[in-house]
Amino acid sequence: MILDEIINELRFALKGKKITNSCIGVAFTASLLSDGSLGISHTILDGENSMSGEIMGKEAEEVVEKLTSNPLERSVALSVLNAVSVLPTFERGDPLDIMEGNKLCLFGYSPTVETNKFSSIIIYDFRNPETQNLGKVIVKPYSSLTSEICNTAVIFASALVAGYTESILKRISVDHLILSGVSSVYAPSTLRSYGFEYVSKVETFDKFRAFRTVCEGGSGRQLAKYTYKIYTKL
Score class of each variant (00 low, 15 high):
Met1Phe: 11
Asp4Tyr: 08
Ile7Pro: 02
Leu14Ala: 14
Lys17Glu: 04
Thr20Pro: 01
Cys23Gly: 09
Ile24Val: 07
Ile24Asn: 01
Gly25Cys: 04
Val26Asn: 13
Ala27Gly: 07
Ser31Asp: 04
Asp35Ala: 13
Gly39His: 04
Ile40Phe: 13
Ile44Val: 13
Ile44Met: 07
Leu45Glu: 11
Asn49Lys: 09
Gly53Lys: 14
Ile55Phe: 11
Met56Asp: 05
Ala60Pro: 03
Ala60Arg: 00
Glu61Trp: 02
Glu61Ala: 04
Glu61Phe: 07
Val63Ala: 10
Val63Ile: 15
Lys66Pro: 08
Lys66Cys: 13
Thr68Phe: 05
Thr68Asp: 14
Asn70Leu: 03
Asn70Gly: 03
Ser75Asp: 11
Val76Pro: 00
Leu78Ile: 10
Leu81Val: 00
Ser85Pro: 04
Val86Met: 14
Thr89Ile: 15
Glu100Val: 13
Gly101Asn: 02
Gly101Gln: 04
Lys103Phe: 13
Thr112Lys: 09
Val113Met: 03
Ser120Lys: 15
Ser120Gln: 12
Ile123Met: 06
Phe126Tyr: 12
Phe126Pro: 00
Arg127Thr: 12
Pro129Lys: 14
Thr131Ile: 07
Asn133Ser: 11
Ile138Asn: 03
Val139Phe: 09
Pro141Ile: 14
Ser144His: 05
Ile149Gln: 11
Cys150Ala: 11
Cys150Phe: 05
Asn151Tyr: 07
Ile155Tyr: 02
Ile155Leu: 14
Phe156Lys: 00
Ala157Trp: 02
Val161Cys: 05
Val161Leu: 14
Leu169Pro: 01
Lys170Asn: 13
Arg171Asp: 07
Ile172Arg: 06
Ser173Asn: 13
Val174Arg: 00
Asp175His: 03
His176Asp: 15
Gly181Ser: 15
Val182Gly: 08
Val185Tyr: 02
Val185Leu: 11
Tyr186Val: 03
Ala187Pro: 06
Arg192Lys: 14
Ser193Arg: 15
Ser193Thr: 12
Phe196Asp: 00
Ser200His: 12
Lys201Cys: 09
Val202Ile: 08
Phe205Gly: 12
Phe208Met: 15
Phe208Gln: 12
Phe208Ala: 08
Arg209Val: 03
Phe211Ser: 06
Arg212Ile: 05
Cys215His: 00
Gly220Glu: 02
Arg221Cys: 13
Arg221Pro: 15
Gln222Ala: 05
Ala224Asp: 15
Lys225Trp: 09
Lys225Ser: 11
Tyr226Phe: 11
Tyr228His: 13
Tyr228Lys: 11
Tyr231Pro: 10
Tyr231Val: 07
Tyr231Ala: 05
Leu234Tyr: 13
